[in-house]
């Protein structure tokens, strides 16, 4: 047997995409290399750093621990999609205001992870925020300002 290409059809940020992929191509490489959606980053490539976080059928997953062939028929959302739609605009503002990013490498994954937390928990404690983002490495901020930003957005959304 060999890794003969497989044709897949899926929705990425609302657009239907049909591509032929090698079975070994990971979802994040597919997004970056085949579709030029380079907002999802490739860090550790073994599920530790969280830089490749994307949404699969509405839930965050590691883009490096999914194969593109597994996503036939799936709905994928990346930072480009949630950014263009304005879904995470308030989180992006809060990250900027509170210096919750420096180099920005972890930020797309961090934003998607934070967005999922706030979808399930309207008023998370700081501990709950830290626990939820525990799978996303940031080597610049020391996390404190990220927790501040997510907490601020939770409070802001609660007031709306």
């Amino acid at each position: 047997m060999n890794g003969r290409n497989v044709e897949i059809s899926l929705t990425v940020n609302g657009e239907t995409v049909t591509e032929s992929v090698e079975p070994r191509r990971t979802l994040v490489d597919f997004l970056r290399e085949n579709l030029a959606l380079t907002g999802s980053h490739v860090g550790c490539e073994h599920g530790v750093c969280g830089a490749c976080t994307v949404r699969l059928n509405g839930e965050i997953v590691r883009g490096c621990l999914m194969l593109a062939v597994q996503c036939n028929g799936a709905k994928i959302e990346t930072i480009e999609g949630v950014s263009d739609s304005g879904e995470v605009a308030d989180l992006q503002d809060a990250f900027e205001k509170r210096n919750a990013l420096q180099c920005g490498f972890c930020t797309p994954g961090m934003l998607l992870t934070a967005q999922e937390l706030l979808a399930h928990n309207k008023a998370p404690s700081r501990d709950a925020i830290r626990e939820h983002i525990s799978g996303n490495y940031c080597r610049c901020t020391g996390y404190h300002s990220i927790v501040d930003a997510i907490e601020a957005v939770a409070q802001q959304r609660g007031r709306r």
Binding site: M1, G47, L65
Partner: peptide
């Protein structure tokens, strides 16, 4: 066997294993 893949795909990426075939049971 490929189920959730959260350990398997990490080992594939690191080339700790190189199976000829993945059987996706999802």
């Amino acid at each position: 066997v490929l189920a959730g893949g959260q350990s398997l795909i990490a080992t594939l990426n690191m080339r700790l294993s190189a199976p000829p075939l993945l059987v996706d049971i999802n």
